[in-house]
Nucleic acid binder design. Structure first.
Length: 575
RNA sequence: GCGCCCGUAGCUCAGUGGAUAGAGUGGUUCACUCCGAAUGAACAGGCCGCGAGUUCGAUCCUCGCCGGGCGCACCA
């Protein structure tokens, strides 16, 4: 496809300006206001070098550029040179490209097949999968899809929190108050019950904590009884998690979690010792990070058992050796910023230069509103909203709306799942991931305005128009034998420009690990399509006009489906 | 106390070193004999937290302050 910035940069280029074509290209802006053109070149930077008022420079450049079929008009306003693209030419280029590429539009080969690991979701075993877990799960999945789309070979790892003192606690609680029948009946909620009871009773009886730590030491030492219980808890939990992953249509390439690295740590503890990094302190072994302004990284507890950082070091080295990644992306809550800083510093001190390829992608906290109070969800206190409940409620609400609307030819069961779950995912990917938010049923169940259902509705509507077109018209669209000059209205043109920018938006979203950039752009496309749809009748008498508009509808539908797909959301044809 | 993050319309949030700071939602009003009204349009709503600095130019970068969140060794 034509690259308008290249065309413009080449047109502007002049030795006297003292800028390279690339410099010029990077200065080109897309004006916020369409009245100022489709592209603009600001001349402020040139003022000093040329010793001329920027307005004069802009006028000179605008005057120099002669007729190029890509542009309808080039003029200067104040210090800007404004370029107005030839609309029909532009539309023909963009729409044809989209329709030729189909589901490949938006994808690229920037990654050149290099390997990227994305670690995400990573729930703690034996704890409920609550609304807070949706963040890592859904953001991580979108990042995986984005990296896949820009040509990387992506490995998805669910780094299960399936080890640590919490299992000591769980085993102690189960032995004291648990029963097999109860556990089999409703595993996670029962385990949660034991876990909350443990913390309640441990407040009055601190010896329980010691008992839990001792039990974890036995687990880590491979005592059969503890290992058997641990395995049982892990299996029961995974079965429940998989139910939610199925609903979200998310899969992983590896579930190697913390326990996987339990026997791989001694090597690194020895290595830290050999490199003189490990010091004893209060019975524990730490790496002192004071000179880097951080509290120490704890490698082993005074009872000799391992910790979070230790396991993450083992995991990182294992992954480097096993996958030889180009980048390893950790989608983990911002609460763990310090942990990741410490961990990266320790890897650096150990001499692993590739630690710079390990990237922590943090996200903000989800809290709950409790009357006037806002508080963190706490597994210990049992104050959580289950993700599965949220998904099911959204699906039910969607089914209610669909029955009300009585859309014909739809399987309510299938589509209400696609739309309801899509709504929850979309909501999650709408805002900058770093922002904290308070969970609200009203918000997650709102399907009007900038929401997943709105975008899916737009897709269904475009699909509907295409169904209403004749076979002959569609054949004409595919053959491309029509005159594009009829496609030049403001609303059509705004839409074309948004479609044009999709590949660069996908790339930007991936580079910044920020799916919301794509979500926002997708909303813009849907809004723009709906405006176009309202402003203009599509299936008109005039053949050229009809086919050009249908080609745009087809391209819009393709792009919306592609973008929804990158976010992990389905695009139903009817709803 | 120290470190990191956030502060933009009533609410939820986009946004950019440059031309008039934008959406959604809520409020008021209009548009379905018309390709799907889960839609579109109109109106109203802003010292871009406060104060300095850098710059030709700051809502954006730097520093300080205020407000909120998170974190700071035997949890993960």
């Amino acid at each position: 496809m034509v690259d308008f910035k290249d065309i413009i940069a080449n047109e502007i280029y002049d030795e006297a300006l003292g800028l390279s074509i690339d410099d010029i290209r990077n200065l080109i802006e897309i004006p916020a206001d369409e009245k100022m053109g489709d592209f603009a070149f600001p001349c402020f930077r040139l003022a000093k070098a040329l010793r001329k008022a920027p307005q004069m420079i802009a006028a000179d450049i605008a005057g120099r550029i002669s007729g190029n079929e890509a542009f309808a008009k080039v003029e200067n306003v104040n210090a800007y040179v404004n370029f107005f693209i030839n609309r029909a030419y532009f539309a023909s280029q963009v729409v044809s490209e989209v329709n030729d590429l189909g589901d490949q539009y938006g994808r690229s080969d920037h990654g050149a097949g290099r390997k990227v690991i994305v670690e995400y979701s990573s729930p703690n075993i034996a704890k409920p999968f609550h609304i807070g877990h949706i963040r890592s799960t859904v953001i991580g999945n979108a990042i995986y899809k984005l990296y896949d789309a820009i040509g990387f070979d992506v490995v998805r790892i669910n780094h299960l929190g399936d080890y640590g003192t919490q299992f000591g606690k769980m085993i102690v609680a189960y032995r004291k108050w648990g029963s097999e029948e109860e556990l089999a009946h409703d595993p996670i909620k029962t385990l949660l019950k034991y876990y909350t009871r443990f913390h309640k009773e441990a407040k009055d009886d601190p010896s329980l904590e010691d008992e839990a730590r001792e039990t974890f030491v036995r687990l880590e030492a491979g005592e059969p009884e503890e290992v058997a219980l641990w395995k049982k808890f892990r299996e029961l939990s995974l079965a429940e998690f998989n139910r939610v992953y199925d609903m979200l249509d998310i899969t992983f390439d590896s579930y190697a979690g913390e326990s996987f690295y339990s026997d791989k740590m001694p090597r690194f503890i020895q290595e830290l010792k050999d490199k003189g990094l490990l010091i004893k302190s209060e019975g524990a072994q730490i790496v002192d990070l004071e000179e880097y302004g951080m509290s120490p990284a704890m490698i082993t507890k005074s009872d000799g058992s391992s910790l979070y950082v230790t396991r993450d070091i083992a995991a990182a080295v294992y992954r480097k050796e096993h996958y030889d990644f180009y980048k390893c992306i950790y989608v983990v809550a911002s609460q763990q910023n310090l942990h990741f800083k410490q961990w990266k510093k320790v890897l650096e001190l150990m001499g692993y230069e590739w630690e710079k390829d390990c990237i922590h992608v943090p996200f903000g906290l989800v809290s709950l509103s409790d009357g006037d109070d806002i508080k963190m969800m706490s597994t210990r206190e049992g104050t959580v909203v289950f993700l599965e409940d949220v998904l099911n409620t959204a699906v039910e609400k969607t089914a209610d709306i669909m029955r009300e609307k009585q859309t014909s030819g739809v399987d309510i069961d299938t589509v209400s799942r696609e739309v309801g779950i899509g709504a929850v995912i979309f909501q999650e990917l709408s805002n900058n991931r770093i922002k904290d938010y308070v969970f609200s049923w009203d918000k997650v169940l709102n399907f009007d305005g900038e929401t997943g259902p709105y975008v899916q509705y737009t897709h269904a509507r475009a699909s509907s128009v295409l169904r209403n077109a004749s076979e002959e018209d569609l054949a004409g669209v595919r053959a491309g034998e029509f005159d594009w000059s009829k496609l030049n209205s403001d609303s059509a043109y705004t839409l074309v420009k948004l479609l044009y920018r999709v590949p660069e938006v996908v790339l930007e979203a991936a580079n910044k690990y920020e799916p919301s950039i794509l979500t926002r752009h997708l909303v813009d496309i849907a809004q723009s399509f709906n405006k176009f749809y309202h402003d203009e009748h599509i299936l008109v008498e005039d053949k050229d006009e009809k086919l050009a508009k249908l080609a745009l509808v087809l391209a819009s539908r393709t792009v919306i489906a592609n973008c929804l797909g990158l976010l992990g959301i389905k695009a139903p044809e009817r709803m």
